[in-house]
């Protein structure tokens, strides 16, 4: 494995008496796509938020490109520019149009001039197939379109790593495909991605590695073939079986047309 771009070491997090994460460690190589799966309430989202310190872990360390983010001396705001994040609920800025959503951090964080930021934002929207929706407000977009704007917004910052927190869980089934397609394209362009998702089809097809998180620890990790075909941990098998029963393996990105 190449020098890791992201290193997570012994992350612990408790909310009151509930221990959500109980010592999670793993590395992510540049260009690697890691999908984190696991039952709800096992700390997947918390883990993701510990990577960019939106949640501060009780114990443990995080490195990005060899720089320790959990070091108090590090400017976390600078570090966050390098870590894009996409949320389950999109979290677009309600009062701004699609293109303004993408522009805001370019002007207020990167200090770009408005015209330059606008050009950049338009390019990013075009990449996610939303050039014609640039001037619409979030309320005028479908869920899938909102999530693609959110992805464009994160990508505009030129991140080294992208975090996806259940990016399709809040979407109607027919809108999931367009988002997964964008994510798949991103993966094929070599973006390093850490994805919390229940989309087994996506995990199977796009992930280089799957991490099965249960009760705040990594119960099993490995390439998709291992976890899907021959899991070592019986709990993995049980979980994947249940998930397939519940949701099927929808989200085979290629079989779905993108709405334009």
């Amino acid at each position: 494995m190449a020098e890791p771009i992201l290193r997570i070491e012994d992350i612990h997090k408790a909310y009151g008496k509930t221990k959500v994460l109980r010592g999670v460690s793993f590395d992510v190589a540049p260009g690697e796509v890691v999908v984190i799966i696991g039952p709800s309430g096992t700390g997947k989202s918390t883990l993701l938020r510990c990577v960019n310190l939106l949640t501060v872990p009780d114990r443990g360390r995080v490195w990005l490109e060899g720089v320790e983010l959990t070091d108090k001396a590090v400017d976390i705001n600078k570090a966050r520019e390098k870590i894009g994040m996409v949320f389950q609920e999109f979290n677009l800025f309600t009062h701004l149009t699609a293109v303004q959503n993408v522009m805001l951090a370019l002007t207020k964080v990167k200090g770009m001039k408005t015209a330059e930021a606008r050009a950049r934002a338009e390019r990013e929207l075009e990449k996610v197939g939303l050039a014609d929706k640039a001037d619409l407000y979030p309320a005028e977009l479908s869920g899938g379109q909102k999530q693609r704007v959110a992805i464009a917004r994160a990508l505009a910052m030129n991140p080294k790593v992208m975090l996806f927190d259940e990016p399709t869980s809040a979407l109607d089934p027919e809108l999931i495909g367009e988002v997964l397609e964008v994510m798949q394209a991103l993966a094929s362009q070599g973006m390093t991605m850490l994805v919390v998702s229940h989309e087994l089809g996506f995990a199977r097809e796009v992930a280089d590695r799957i991490i099965f998180l249960e009760d705040g620890v990594i119960a099993e990790e490995g390439p998709p073939e291992q976890l899907f075909v021959n899991p070592r941990n019986p709990r993995t098998r049980e979980f994947l079986y249940k998930l397939t029963e519940l949701y099927g393996e929808h989200g085979e990105p290629k079989s779905r047309g993108r709405e334009r």
């Binding site: 939106l54 705001n77 966050r80 949320f87 609920e89 805001l104 964080v109």
Partner: peptide
């Protein structure tokens, strides 16, 4: 104004006051 928007702003590298000024305040005033 949903907390999630503030979270998204922070995730983009905005300081809390920047996020308040450009994300929360314009919506709150409306």
């Amino acid at each position: 104004v949903s907390r999630g928007q503030l979270l998204a702003a922070r995730a983009l590298g905005m300081r809390s006051l920047t996020a308040f000024r450009w994300v929360v305040l314009p919506q709150a005033l409306r």
